[in-house]
């Protein structure tokens, strides 16, 4: 092969290039790694800045404490529910619409596409949507956290391009000759051939629901509806107040608690990101696939 004939300059280039890439990789990975080792290290040692490469004074106390926190568990359960129900709804609605839009014999296809794409560029804004949600009686319900974001036009376009490029027209014609209806064709023939796009959409919508906090912040005020991200915000960013010490016995407890406050924060970050990170190797592949599909016709 010609490529093996490298000049000296090219060899230098390769060495510099790989070194730089590894360096960039390390810089990007380090904060994530640090959070993990800090979450299982003695908080005093962390605060002294001695935990740099390996965990020191290993302890699981942070995790023990945060697992005692009921709000975290409830947030977890809520988020699981919203993510599951929401993603199911999103993927179903989006796939159905995307398939219909992929059919060239759909009368009014161009107009319908414009109907969807317009919303990418212009929206009513925060308050008109807020009033709309309120008028529908969705404020302070679990429903709003499931329903909002059902159709992402970006995902719709990706799915449509997928159907356009993978389901051959001949197949539809043959099925129609055999008396297959559009819905039958979609459910029995097109969908089983489209597992890849279903996976892409599931991952896109799923991660979106898991990480979503803003809708919960503005549309719910009941604690029992709070998803994990809102609980996290209270702990990590608003530094949720622990109870005020009154008696002397409690002061010692309070000092102890402050000592562990940072430890708990690291632990919470790890615990909340765990499901996404476990899914990551799988999800990453489909995420990339989605971008590639989107790039074909953006």
């Amino acid at each position: 092969m010609i490529r093996d004939r490298k000049t000296r300059g090219d060899r230098v280039f390769d060495v510099v290039n790989i070194t730089l890439l590894v360096l960039i990789g390390l810089i990007i990975a380090y904060p994530l790694y640090f959070v993990i080792i800090a979450s299982i290290s003695d908080p005093d040692v962390v605060n002294k800045g001695q935990v740099i490469l390996t965990p020191k004074g290993a302890t699981l106390l942070g995790y023990e404490r945060l697992f005692q926190d009921k709000t975290i568990w409830r947030g977890y359960a809520n988020t699981f529910f919203y993510t599951f129900a929401g993603t199911l709804l999103d993927v179903t609605v989006t796939t159905c619409a995307a398939y219909a839009l992929s059919r060239s014999d759909l009368v009014g296809r161009k107009l319908l596409m414009k109907y969807f794409v317009f919303t990418m560029y212009f929206s009513g804004g925060l308050i008109p949507l807020f009033i709309q949600v309120n008028n529908m009686g969705l404020y302070n319900t679990r429903w709003v956290l499931i329903i909002l974001g059902t159709v992402s036009v970006y995902n719709l376009i990706i799915a449509r391009s997928f159907f356009e490029s993978t389901i051959p027209l001949e197949m539809l014609e043959a099925a129609k000759l055999d008396g297959c209806s559009d819905i039958q064709f979609f459910l029995l023939i097109a969908l089983p051939l489209s597992k890849a796009i279903l996976a892409v959409l599931t991952v896109y919508y799923g991660v979106g629901h898991w990480n979503q906090y803003f809708n919960a912040l503005i549309y719910t005020s009941k604690q029992e509806y709070y998803p994990l991200q809102i609980v996290l915000r209270e702990i990590l960013i608003q530094a949720r107040q622990t109870e005020v010490a009154v008696t002397e016995g409690q002061i010692a407890e309070l000092i102890e608690r402050n000592r562990y406050a940072e430890l708990i924060k690291y632990g919470v970050i790890v615990v909340s990101s765990l499901p996404v990170m476990i899914m990551y190797p799988f999800a990453q592949k489909f995420f990339v696939k989605g971008v590639m599909l989107g790039a074909v016709k953006g």
Partner: peptide, 21 residues
């Protein structure tokens, strides 16, 4: 694989990490 990973971190966690670190 490494450089894609932070994209999956939620906004709350990202800002939380900044605040802690």
């Amino acid at each position: 694989n490494v450089i894609y990973a932070p994209h999956f971190v939620s906004m709350v966690v990202l800002v939380g990490m900044i605040n802690v670190m």
